[in-house]
Amino acid sequence: MTTMSYAARDSRTMLRRNLKKALRYPSLTLTVVIMPIMMLLLFNYVFGTALGAGIGGLPAGSGEYIDYVAPGIILMAATSGALTTAISVCVDKTEGIVDRFRTMPISRASFLTGHVVGSVIQTMTSITLVIGVALLVGFRPDATAVEWAAAVGLLALLTLALTWLSAGIGLVAKNPETASNIPMPLTFMPFLGSAIVPPESMPTGLRWFAEHQPFTPVIETLRGLWLGTAIGSSAAVGLAWCAALSLVGYVWARRTFKAGAKR
């Protein structure tokens, strides 16, 4: 077997380990699902009438606030998945399992690869459930099959980027509690974008941040794909952010893991 074959085999083994662990301890996965669903119900049924009345130009053909807010809340499921990755990696590190793996004849890349791929699968499953709830409460996209595939692909790319960043967070965190707190700003950054209200309604400084942060172009691209609103340059900018965050997270996590092995 080649080096790549050994790495792929060991990564599959680590992936199975992490997926089995997630099934045995589903509380973290449930948290990723429950938080966006609660936010979706809250903003739709409690704040939806007031917020919807204040937003001009809701998605064409809808006129319902749920069609505006659902893409942002669905994206929030991707950001919430960052918590599970950071905590899971940190638990393995603090419990000494990582040190055991380093003494075994396995690929050094397999530990992080197994965690990242496993977390992406869990998060995409959570996103699917949140989309299902959104459809039940009135979200009505008119996307074609190709547009749905593009939207899911964009969410997968964002999830991958955030998962690599979270793996790095888990490696540098002192304990699981710290690992659960550091990614929290990522979870709520969509609210400081266009998830709930248009940036045009915000004060000048906050509006600038909302328009130039990573999640706003992704949200606007999802709205365009699902509901037919104008996408403009949002798709290119969103993809660029996903690529940049993936690269930064990957390099940071790999270097941190290698540095830990030298101590």
Rank of each mutant, 00 (worst) to 15 (best):
162 L>C: 10
196 I>T: 12
195 A>S: 12
180 S>Q: 15
179 A>N: 13
202 M>T: 01
204 T>E: 11
218 V>H: 04
186 L>I: 15
159 T>D: 08
203 P>Y: 04
217 P>V: 08
216 T>M: 06
199 P>S: 02
197 V>P: 00
206 L>G: 02
197 V>C: 01
208 W>F: 08
162 L>P: 03
166 S>C: 14
191 F>C: 01
165 L>Y: 06
186 L>D: 06
200 E>M: 00
159 T>A: 09
181 N>L: 15
162 L>G: 08
165 L>W: 09
212 H>C: 03
165 L>P: 09
161 A>K: 07
165 L>M: 15
201 S>D: 01
202 M>F: 13
182 I>Q: 02
179 A>F: 03
188 F>E: 01
206 L>M: 14
178 T>H: 12
159 T>Q: 10
186 L>E: 06
198 P>Q: 00
170 G>V: 09
159 T>I: 11
171 L>N: 07
169 I>N: 03
212 H>G: 01
203 P>R: 03
206 L>S: 11
212 H>P: 05
171 L>T: 02
218 V>F: 06
193 G>L: 06
192 L>Q: 12
200 E>K: 01
199 P>Y: 00
217 P>R: 08
167 A>Q: 03
203 P>C: 04
205 G>F: 11
182 I>E: 00
173 A>Y: 06
172 V>L: 14
205 G>M: 10
185 P>M: 07
203 P>V: 06
160 L>Q: 02
169 I>L: 15
165 L>F: 12
155 L>S: 01
201 S>Y: 00
208 W>L: 06
170 G>W: 08
176 P>R: 10
163 T>A: 14
161 A>T: 07
210 A>Q: 06
211 E>T: 11
206 L>P: 07
202 M>R: 04
157 L>G: 03
165 L>H: 05
177 E>G: 13
157 L>Q: 12
193 G>I: 08
216 T>K: 04
191 F>G: 02
179 A>Y: 09
209 F>H: 05
167 A>Y: 11
158 L>S: 11
216 T>N: 11
207 R>Y: 03
210 A>V: 09
197 V>H: 00
171 L>Q: 11
182 I>S: 04
215 F>G: 03
170 G>Y: 07
196 I>G: 00
191 F>D: 01
161 A>S: 15
168 G>M: 08
181 N>I: 15
166 S>M: 11
185 P>G: 09
210 A>T: 04
209 F>I: 12
188 F>A: 03
177 E>V: 15
158 L>F: 13
195 A>V: 04
209 F>D: 05
177 E>I: 15
181 N>F: 14
168 G>L: 09
166 S>N: 14
179 A>G: 13
175 N>H: 12
182 I>V: 15
162 L>W: 10
169 I>T: 14
155 L>V: 09
173 A>K: 05
169 I>C: 10
169 I>W: 03
193 G>M: 11
201 S>Q: 04
207 R>S: 14
203 P>G: 02
162 L>Q: 11
183 P>G: 13
192 L>G: 13
175 N>K: 07
197 V>I: 14
199 P>G: 01
169 I>Q: 07
207 R>W: 03
204 T>Q: 09
176 P>H: 08
214 P>F: 02
162 L>H: 08
